[in-house]
Amino acid sequence: MEILEATSSHWPQIYPFFARIVAAGETYAYPEGLGSTEAAELWMERPPGRTAVAVSGGRVLGSAKMGPNRPGRGAHIATAAFMVDPEASGRGVGRALGVHVVEWARAAGYVGMQFNAVVETNTAAVHLWQALGFRIMTTIPGAFRHATRGLVGLHVMYQKL
C-alpha cells in the first residue's frame, strides 16, 4: 500500500465510499445527498492543507484530508479527517493514513494535532487514535445525531507534536 497526494484523478474512486460512509450516518456530520462536486469541495483540501489517498494495485482504499485546524492564530495546530472504503476495512488502511498524517503535520511544523469530532461510538477509530498517541480531551454529549443510536457524544482528541 502506498500513501500518495490525492489528485482530481483519484476523486472518482473516493466519492463512492465517501457517499456511502456519509449516508450510513454513523461517523460524519456532512450533509446527506451531496453530489460529487459538493463532496469534492469538502474533502479535497487546498494548500496549506492536502488530501492523501492509500492506494494498492491502482485502487484507492482510503483517504485523509489534513491542514490547519483554524486560520490565523490557530494555524499552528493541525487537524485531519479520514475515510476508509468499507470494503478495505481491517487491512491497516486507517493506521497507515493516521501515521502518514501525523508525520506530515510534524514535518510541516505544526505543534499539535486536534480532531474536533470523533464520534464516541466509532470505537475502532477512537482506539486507533489513542494507539497513535491522541488523548480524549473532552466529549460533547449528544453532539452527533447517529443514524441508529440517536444522540451520541463527539470526542475532541489531541496530540502534542
Rank of each mutant, 00 (worst) to 15 (best):
S56A: 15
V119C: 01
L61E: 13
R20K: 10
A64N: 06
K160I: 08
A24L: 04
L97N: 05
W104F: 03
R70Q: 08
Q114E: 15
A117P: 05
A108M: 02
W11N: 07
E26L: 08
L154G: 00
G153M: 00
R20P: 07
I77S: 13
W129I: 10
F144S: 11
V126S: 03
A108K: 14
P68N: 10
W43M: 04
F115G: 12
E120S: 11
S8K: 04
S36V: 01
E120C: 12
M113A: 14
A19K: 04
N122P: 12
R50V: 13
G35W: 01
G58L: 01
G98F: 01
A124H: 11
R95Q: 12
G58A: 00
W43Y: 06
H146Y: 03
G57N: 07
V93L: 05
R149P: 11
E45G: 08
M113Q: 13
M44E: 05
A19H: 03
M137V: 15
L128M: 14
P71W: 13
E32I: 12
V22F: 08
T148D: 02
A131P: 04
M66E: 06
V22G: 00
A23G: 12
A80E: 08
G35L: 06
M113P: 14
L97D: 04
A64E: 10
G153P: 04
V55H: 01
H127K: 13
Q13F: 08
H10E: 07
M83F: 14
V101G: 09
A29G: 14
A40V: 06
V119F: 09
I140C: 08
A105T: 04
H127I: 11
R95P: 03
P31Q: 05
T79L: 05
T121E: 14
H127G: 15
E26D: 03
P48M: 02
T121M: 01
I136G: 06
T138Y: 09
Y158G: 00
M66I: 05
G35Q: 11
A78Y: 01
P68K: 09
E5I: 14
L154T: 03
L154A: 01
Y15N: 04
F82R: 00
R20N: 03
V152S: 05
I77H: 15
G153L: 02
Q159L: 13
G94T: 03
S9T: 13
